[in-house]
Simulated scan of single mutants.
Amino acid sequence: MSDPPAGLTLAPLSFFEGDAVSIARALIGATLIVRGVGGVIVETEAYRGDDAASHSFNGETTRNRAMFGPPGHAYVYRSYGIHWCLNVVCASGQAVLFRAIEPAFGLETMRARRAREKTRELCAGPGRLGQALGIDHADDGQPFDGSGLEIRTPPTSSVPVLAGPRIGITKNVDIPWRFGLSGSSYLSRRFA
Rank of each mutant, 00 (worst) to 15 (best):
R48M: 09
V34Q: 02
E117C: 03
W84K: 01
I151F: 07
G29R: 00
I175Q: 05
I135N: 00
L122K: 01
A52R: 15
A192D: 10
N64H: 15
R63V: 14
Q94C: 14
T153F: 14
G183P: 09
I23Y: 06
R190T: 11
T170D: 01
A138K: 12
P155Y: 07
G49D: 04
S184C: 12
R120W: 07
G39K: 00
G49W: 02
A104P: 08
I175R: 05
Q142K: 13
S184E: 09
I101D: 03
S22H: 00
T109K: 10
R25C: 11
V88H: 06
H55N: 06
E121R: 03
R113N: 04
S92W: 03
R63P: 07
E108K: 15
G49V: 02
Y75D: 05
G72F: 03
Y47F: 11
E117F: 06
D139C: 13
V96T: 04
Y47T: 00
M1P: 01
R152E: 13
L181Q: 05
T44Y: 11
D19H: 13
P71M: 10
E150L: 04
A112Q: 11
R166P: 02
F98D: 03
G168N: 04
R114C: 02
E150Q: 11
Y75V: 04
D50T: 12
C85W: 15
Y77H: 10
R25K: 11
S182D: 14
P71W: 07
D50K: 10
G134D: 12
A24C: 07
V159S: 05
T61Y: 14
L8T: 04
A24G: 12
I28K: 01
E150P: 00
P165K: 04
S147G: 15
S184D: 10
G106M: 05
R113C: 02
G106N: 02
E121P: 04
A30L: 06
G36V: 15
Y186H: 14
C123S: 08
P165R: 03
S56R: 04
D136A: 11
F57D: 07
T156A: 15
I167P: 01
G49M: 03
V34M: 05
I169D: 00
W177E: 02
P4Y: 10
R65V: 09
M67T: 01
F191N: 00
H73W: 13
T109V: 15
L107E: 08
L27N: 03
I169T: 00
I169V: 05
C90V: 06
N64Y: 15
G125H: 03
P5N: 10
F57P: 06
A52D: 07
Q94Y: 10
R111E: 10
V173L: 05
Q131C: 13
F68S: 02
G38T: 14
G36E: 07
S185D: 13
V37S: 07
D136W: 14
F179C: 08
A124W: 00
R178G: 09
L181E: 06
S22V: 01
A91H: 12
G148Q: 12
D174E: 14
L149I: 11
G93Y: 13
F15Y: 12
L27S: 06
F105R: 10
G148P: 12
E108F: 11
T44P: 09
E43K: 08
A104Q: 15
A104I: 13
R120M: 07
V21P: 01
R120V: 06
